[in-house]
Design a protein around this nucleic acid. Sequence first.
DNA 1: CTGAAAGCGCTTACAG
DNA 2: CTGAAAGCGCTTACAG
Lengths: 332, 332
Amino acid sequence: MRATVKDVARLAQVSPKTVSNVVTGTTPVSDAMRARVEAAMLELDYVPNLSARALRNGRSGLIALALPDLSTPYSAEMAHHFVVAAGTRGLGVQIEETAVSGERERQLISRARAHLIDGLILNPVLLPNVTVQDGVRLPPTVFIGEVEQSVGDYVWVDNVAAVRELTSYLVDLGHRRIAIMGVMKSETSRLRLKGYRAALRAARIRRDPVLEIFGPKWSPAGAYAAITAYLEHHDLPEAIVCMTDSIAAGVLNALWTLGHRVPDDVSVVGYDNVADSAFAVPPLTTIDFDKDAYASTALDLLEARIADRDRPIERVTMPHRLLIRASTAARR
Amino acid sequence: MRATVKDVARLAQVSPKTVSNVVTGTTPVSDAMRARVEAAMLELDYVPNLSARALRNGRSGLIALALPDLSTPYSAEMAHHFVVAAGTRGLGVQIEETAVSGERERQLISRARAHLIDGLILNPVLLPNVTVQDGVRLPPTVFIGEVEQSVGDYVWVDNVAAVRELTSYLVDLGHRRIAIMGVMKSETSRLRLKGYRAALRAARIRRDPVLEIFGPKWSPAGAYAAITAYLEHHDLPEAIVCMTDSIAAGVLNALWTLGHRVPDDVSVVGYDNVADSAFAVPPLTTIDFDKDAYASTALDLLEARIADRDRPIERVTMPHRLLIRASTAARR
DNA sequence: CTGAAAGCGCTTACAG
DNA sequence: CTGAAAGCGCTTACAG
C-alpha cells in the first residue's frame, strides 16, 4: 500500500505535522529534521494524496477548461496555451467539451463545484446572456470568447474592430464586391458581421445581402460545401472574408477545386491565425492575437477570482493585429 | 457555504447514510424516502464534494491524458476523442503536455499517483523502453502511440505495415525516386522509415540515402524549411512520403511556393488523416484509422487495468487503411 | 521549531 | 430499508 504521512512520520520519528511542514514548506524546518524526513519519504516512496489535500484545503489545484470542440485547430491551440500556462502556476487542467451537448454549458456552470476543480474557464458558444445571468451561483469562472455578458470576468478580442480592419484592408486593395462567409446564428458571427458591415459603410460600399453567405458549419468541410453551393448560382466575389481560418481552409480548397486562383481571381482572408494558416496554399491573410498572453490573462483573472470571489468583475480586451500574407492581392 | 450530506440529512430528517444511498444508488431506497431527500437536496442546492468522495473511495473519476503537444491537429483530434469517450463513461480528463519538458514523461509515470487521477493514458515520444521498465511502480497506465514496450498495456497502429502500403501505392503509380520526409531520432520515425524501406525492397528499388530526408521538426514550419533547403541542392523526387500530415502540409506549401505542381510534378502522401487533410490543396492521400475506436479501446484497457492491476498485459493493434485522394497521381 | 487533536465531507462495514 | 460510528489522508489552529 501507499505510504501516508503517518508512515513517514513514524519512520522519521517525528510528528505528521513535521512531515507536512517539509512537504508544503509552510513552516520552516531545521535542516537536520528536513533531511531525516526526506530520507524517510524517499525510502517509503511517499507521494502525497492530493484528494486528501484537496478535501482539507478546499482546493484541488485543478481548473476546468471548457471549449466547444477540441478537435478544431483553434481550440487545440487555445488548450495548449492554457495547459502550459496553468502548468507554470502549478495548476492542472481538466478539459471539457461543450459542443457535445447543448446542455453541457449550463451544467458546467451550475455543477462545476461538484467536480473537484477550483475554477472554470468557459468559452461559451450557445449560452445566451440571459441563461448565464440566470445561473444562480457561479463557481469562480472566467469567460473567454465572444459572448458579451456582465455576470463574470472575461477576456476577449475586439471582434468587431478586427473584422472591420480586415475588410477595410480588402477595400484598400481595390475590392468592392466583398463577401463574408460563415454567417450564422451565434454571437461570434454577429460581431464579425457587424465589423464587416461597418467597414463597407465607412467605404460607402452598399451592402449586398447576397454577399453575406450563410454558413452554419464552421469547419473546412462545412465551408467547402457552402461556398461550392453558393458559386453554382452566384458570381465569384472579388474577395471573401471568412469568419475563421478553418472556414478559409475549406474555401481555399473549394476555389482550387473549381479552378479559381487565389489571390489572382479572388482574395481570401481568415480570422484566428491558426498555426497551419501560415502554410495554407496560399498562406492566409488573417487576424492574429497573442494566444499565450490571452491564456495568461485569463488565468490571472481566474486566480484572482478564486482568491476573492467578491472582487469587482474585470474585462480585458486583448490586442489583435492584421497579418498580411499571400492570399490577398490588389484588384487589377 | 455549500451544503453537505449532513445538512441534507438534517433537513430531510434522515441519516447521512440515506442521503448517500439516494445519491449513489448503491442501496435501494423507498420512493417516499427518496422524494424527501431529493427535495432537501434541491432546496439546499446540494452538490456532492468529489474531493471527499475521492478520498473515501480511492477513486476520483479523473484520468490523465498525456500527449506531446496539444496544439498539433493530430493531438487535438486524439484529445477530442478521448474526452468524449471518457465523458460517456463518467470520467473526466486532465490533460498533460509532455513535450514541454523532457522530464515530464518520466515524472508523470512515477508521480501520477500524486495527482488525483485514477489512471493515465500516455503517448510517449522520447521515453526509451528502458526507462519505462525502470519506472518501478506504474500507476494504471495505457500507452498509445509508437513506443514498443512490454511493461504496460498499449494501443497502436501498425506503423510499419501502414507506411509500407503507402509507399507501395506510390510504386504502383509508377514512381521510382520516392523520398521520405521527416527522418529523425524517434520511435515513430524509425518504424515508418522501416515500412518505407520494406516497400522499396519488395519492389526491388535500390534505396538511396539521399532520398531519406532528415526533418527533426514535425510541423508544417519545420517541414517547409527542411524540404526547401533540400531542394536547393537536390532534384525534385517523383514522390514524397511525409511522416505525418502536418509535415505534408508544410511540404505542399513549399512545393507550391517553388512552383512545383502536386500531383503533376510530384506526388505527396501523409499519415494520420487529420481532419484538415481532406481540404488540403490538393487533398492529401494518407493513412487513416478510426480515432474514436482507438480512444475507446484505450479507455477499455485503462478501466480494466484500474479494476485489476494484476491482469495480464494487453496490446491492441488498430486497423488502418490507405485513403487515396488528389495529391497522388500516376507517373507519366 | 515541533506535537497531539480535530475535522474537511464522504461512504462503508456493522448493527438493527 | 435505515442509523450511529469510524476512517480515508491530509493540514490547521492550538499549545508548548
